[in-house]
Amino acid sequence: MEVGIVGYGAYVPRHRIKVEEIAKVWGADAPSYKKGLMLREKSVPTPDQDTITMSVEAARHAVRRAGIDPALIGAIYVGSESHPYAVKPSGTVVAEALGATPEIHCADMEFACKAGSEGMFVALSLVKAGQMPYALGIGADTSQGAPGDALEYSASAGAAAYIFGREKIVAVCEDTYAYMTDTPDFWRREYQFYPRHAGRYTGEPAYFKHVLSCARGLMAKSKTTPADFRWAVFHQPNGKFPMRAAQELGFSKEKVEQGWLSPTLGNTYSGSSPMGLSAILDVAKPGDRILMVSYGSGAGSDGFIWRVTDHITAVQGLAPHTRAQLEDRPIYIDYGTYAKYRGKIRKLAE
């Protein structure tokens, strides 16, 4: 029996900060950052937005497209490295807001930027195993980069949600694959506010090794080649890495551009490749095949092959498109406002 995506949705906050605005504060060279990392601006969450609020909005879009009673959703997995609570699940709030409680299994996922695809992987598998009619996987983050660090130019906010089921599928999952090793490229210790990374080590032995190995392993397993895919989406820590991964694997720019959101969205961490996928589904045509490879530091990649069905055209217009949200009346803020919104200013203790 075929299993796949029956509903999907994304959420993009409206506030933005430009690379120049950050570079100005730290005396960095904006043009070289823009060229080197292929980043122009990034989304910023307001103080009233977090992983939970964005997950709720993305999941509501997914429910609208799925056209199902949320009470039938049997599992919810919210993947994030910025869960608002250290102890207390994000998923309980999201499920309650959707009206999916109380008969539902819930867990928060954490695996750096791979937590979202991880949730999707598990949710999909539960439906495939016949455990439940529908399951929901969400990737969302309001990630923080340390002030002045290279990550500050990319760490952004967004969410994507996927409901998996067996009826009225919009994208069948043809195959999955996972590739993981212990690779200390990026981490955040307990009680630390900002994550740390290992500089250039995050490239070849970390991102590229896992993304390329996962993509190659998945194509070998499913006996496919880049020519079999209309679209591809890779994790987007910046603008440059996914483009280079695509090039090395033999995917043309035209196949990755639709899901390549990072130049104006930034790195939404757990939301990154899932949001890229939602942007592709917004425009995909029946029969299109999509390769999706996530990446999470630590490190690992999840790979999925999706085949878009005839039903896609009936749901694309039921909720806001990802790129439409990305382009919808952005509100630009200065670094001071950004620092206030992101809790980077030391204030009086309450």
Binding site: D48, I52, E57, A97
Partner: peptide, 11 residues
């Protein structure tokens, strides 16, 4: 309507 954070009881 959108789902947002309204208040928090301190840190």
């Amino acid at each position: 309507l959108e789902f947002r954070r309204l208040q928090q009881d301190g840190e």
